[in-house]
Measured scan of single mutants.
Amino acid sequence: PDDEWKERLREAEEKNNWKLFEELARKAGVSEEKIEEWKRRWS
């Protein structure tokens, strides 16, 4: 299951679909801290 969400995150990233990325990350149990960090790195 871990690989599956990583794959989906990669797809979201490729499409630059931040909303989807964020949603998937939350569902995968990624901390808000980590998500914010990704946001900063991404923008």
Rank of each mutant, 00 (worst) to 15 (best):
D2C: 15
D2T: 11
D2E: 11
D3L: 08
D3G: 07
D3S: 10
D3H: 08
E4A: 08
E4M: 10
W5K: 01
W5P: 01
K6A: 15
K6D: 13
E7K: 08
E7N: 06
E7Y: 03
E7M: 07
E7P: 01
R8Y: 13
R8D: 08
R8H: 13
R8V: 15
L9C: 12
L9T: 02
L9I: 06
L9G: 03
R10I: 08
R10L: 13
R10Q: 11
R10P: 05
E11D: 11
E11I: 03
A12H: 05
E13F: 15
E13M: 15
E13Y: 15
E13R: 15
E13T: 13
E14S: 11
E14Y: 13
E14V: 08
K15L: 13
K15W: 08
K15C: 15
N16Q: 13
N17V: 04
W18L: 03
W18N: 00
W18D: 00
K19E: 13
K19Y: 11
K19P: 15
L20R: 06
L20F: 08
L20H: 09
L20E: 14
F21W: 10
F21D: 00
E23F: 10
E23I: 07
E23G: 03
E23S: 07
L24W: 15
L24F: 11
L24E: 10
A25R: 00
A25D: 00
A25P: 00
A25N: 00
R26I: 08
R26Q: 05
R26V: 03
K27Y: 10
K27F: 09
A28R: 04
G29P: 00
G29S: 01
V30D: 00
V30Y: 14
S31T: 09
S31W: 01
E32M: 06
E32D: 12
E32A: 09
E33A: 11
E33K: 07
E33M: 06
E33D: 09
E33Y: 06
K34A: 11
K34G: 03
K34F: 12
I35M: 04
I35Y: 02
I35H: 00
I35F: 02
E36H: 06
E36Y: 06
E36K: 07
E36I: 07
E36S: 08
E37R: 02
E37T: 02
E37M: 05
E37D: 07
E37G: 01
W38Q: 03
W38R: 02
W38N: 01
W38V: 06
W38L: 10
K39N: 03
K39T: 02
K39F: 07
K39H: 09
K39M: 07
R40K: 11
R40L: 13
R41N: 14
R41I: 14
R41L: 15
R41E: 15
R41D: 13
R41Y: 13
W42E: 02
W42A: 05
W42N: 04
W42H: 06
S43A: 14
S43G: 14
S43T: 12
S43N: 14
S43W: 15
